[in-house]
């Protein structure tokens, strides 16, 4: 017994290491398998408040750019509105045609970004609104000029967003000239300006600079939101699909105001799709 005690004392550093390292590993593993639903993340109210404080100072530094972005968005919205007012329907064909049956399907909740990361392998954002403002898990998040990500966790006053710059994020997109659809993933894991579109069939001819829009199939995002433009085509992934490299229209290094998309039909859609799975 005494020898055992001496042995434990002599190599105590090693045993402490095993104990603490084991506990850390336990945290890592549980945190991964529960999709980071743990209370100790950045939507936690204490950390959220600290980030919000820091951000309230930081936001002054980029006021000019933010204003510029908002003015540009206003201008583009005005142009779109003009399209509906003209009697000449041929002029409308320039922008993607929007199905009028989908009017009133989506609501947009304005939120500002209190924390953003672009240099990690899995990037997350924190927004300053939560379940009290109507944000729920799984909603899409848009920036003035493109898509941002999908809501991951919600607390009453904050929410975290799984950015598009995350290996698990997949968004259904379509091309401007052809009606095929593929899925948008970050892919590169290195550069926050570029992403990949995968699963485009091989026979489709894609030109560079062709615009990429959301398809609206996933229900996270409305149809026809600009995602980016193709910069490189014909990347072969080894099977019968084509990969495209696209330049994202969202500037992830400078995100301040975002819109959380609330799909009013999401519950209905989910119910319907669940019945499909039961039968098939």
């Amino acid at each position: 017994m005494r020898n055992l005690w001496l042995f434990l004392r002599r190599y105590n550093a090693f045993f402490w290491f095993i104990l603490f390292f084991g506990f850390s590993m336990f945290l890592v593993v549980t945190n991964n398998s529960f999709q980071r639903a743990s209370a100790l993340n950045s939507s936690n109210s204490v950390i959220g408040h600290i980030y919000e404080k820091v951000n309230s100072w930081k936001s002054y530094l980029s006021l000019t750019e933010t204003n510029d972005q908002l003015v540009k968005e206003n201008a583009s919205l005005r142009t779109q509105l003009e399209n509906y007012l003209t009697t000449d329907t041929v002029a409308m064909a320039k922008s993607p045609v929007i199905d009028s049956s989908e009017f009133g399907r989506y609501e947009f909740i304005i939120a500002s970004v209190t924390n953003n990361s672009i240099h990690q392998k899995s990037n997350y954002l924190t927004l300053n609104k939560g379940s009290l403002a109507g944000i729920e898990k799984g909603m899409g998040v848009l920036a003035p000029n493109g898509v941002v990500g999908i809501v991951l966790n919600v607390t009453p006053h904050f929410s975290t967003v799984q950015s598009l710059l995350h290996p698990d994020t997949k968004i259904s997109v379509t091309l401007a000239n052809t009606d095929v659809f593929g899925s948008l993933v970050w892919g590169s894991n290195v550069d926050y300006r570029f992403a990949m579109v995968k699963e485009i069939p091989n026979h489709v001819k894609v030109k560079t600079a062709e615009k990429v829009y959301t398809s609206g199939y996933s229900g996270h995002f409305p149809k026809g939101i600009l995602v980016g433009a193709v910069v490189e085509t014909g990347i072969s992934s080894g099977d019968s699909f084509l990969d495209l490299r696209i330049l994202l229209s969202t500037n992830f290094s400078n995100l301040h105001h975002v819109y959380v998309v609330k799909d009013l039909f999401s519950k209905e859609l989910k119910q319907l799709e669940e019945t499909n799975q039961d039968n098939g």
Binding site: F21, M25, L27, N41, S42, I47
Partner: peptide
């Protein structure tokens, strides 16, 4: 650090190794 980075346990494990 982990709490701020949203990577619970990763930095903790690395720091414990550093202590050893």
């Amino acid at each position: 650090v982990d709490v701020f980075y949203d990577t619970l346990g990763v930095n903790a494990a690395a720091c414990v190794t550093l202590a050893a």
